[in-house]
């Protein structure tokens, strides 16, 4: 997933990574170590990638000026329209699960030019037909000021892309060893897909060795447990 995310980072862009996002952090740092050395990288709370001196206010002010080219969000539920739910599963007043809340995700989903959604799992519980609460809508009526929005979804099974014409998610590629049927089985809405679904290119040897070396070391400063458990042995 980090290698897939890395490919989406373009050189010279300003890329920000929010809280609880170790996989995007690894992807962005991999991109910076490889093809995007001039990318400006911001990782919330990371001692080496946090340029602000005035708390999260300065971060949000920066975002509101439209300065982020790429950002990453996730959701307790994600639906076929790109809507995110970070509020509650079930009825809002009597929820089955109370989710952590949206923080800045509604604003950032509108303002970062491209937003990549990520999940560490791919199940029908998460990928639903319609979210129970809309924290961040995937699309807006034309009169709403919205320079940015959803771009792709990266999961352990596949990459989905957001079609801005139809305002729906579509299957872009399945990871090596994963079939289209497996992805459909794990997804709570009918997948729109080309007749021949391409396979996601696997990470190169170079990418893997960077991920297991300097990238892992940098990410461990913020996510030590993730880095002890999530990386395969070199």
């Amino acid at each position: 997933m980090a290698a897939v995310i890395a490919r989406e980072v373009r050189d010279g862009e300003t890329v920000a990574v929010g809280t609880l996002s170790p996989i995007p952090a690894a992807g962005v740092l991999l991109a910076r170590a490889r093809h995007a050395p001039r990318a400006t990288v911001i990782i919330i709370n990371h001692e080496d990638y946090w340029p602000f001196h005035n708390g999260s206010k300065e971060f949000y002010d920066f975002a509101q000026r439209g300065k982020f080219d790429l950002f990453f969000l996730s959701g307790g539920q994600i639906d076929q329209f790109g809507n995110l739910n970070l509020i509650a599963i079930g009825d809002h007043d009597h929820p089955a699960i109370r989710l952590p809340g949206g923080a800045g995700s509604a604003m950032l989903y509108y303002l970062a030019r491209r937003v990549i959604l990520f999940r560490g799992d791919h199940t029908r519980r998460t990928f639903v037909e319609r979210v129970d609460c809309v924290t961040s809508p995937g699309s807006s009526p034309p009169r709403v000021l919205r320079p940015g929005g959803p771009w792709k979804v990266v999961t352990p099974l596949a990459v989905l892309t957001f079609n801005h014409e139809t305002k729906r998610l579509e299957l872009e590629s399945v990871h090596p060893g994963v079939s289209r049927e497996q992805v459909q089985q794990a997804t709570g809405f009918p997948l729109i897909a080309p007749p021949q679904v391409p396979t996601t290119p696997p990470p190169t040897e170079e990418a893997l060795s960077l991920l297991r070396g300097p990238v892992r070391e940098a990410v461990a400063k913020l996510y030590p447990v993730f880095c002890r458990t999530a990386f395969l042995a070199a």
């Binding site: 300003t14 400006t40 911001i42 340029p51 602000f52 001196h53």
Partner: peptide, 15 residues
Amino acid sequence: DALRRAPYGVRLSAI
């Protein structure tokens, strides 16, 4: 480091 130790002034990020 000298910027961080400055006794007065506001730090403005290179960003």
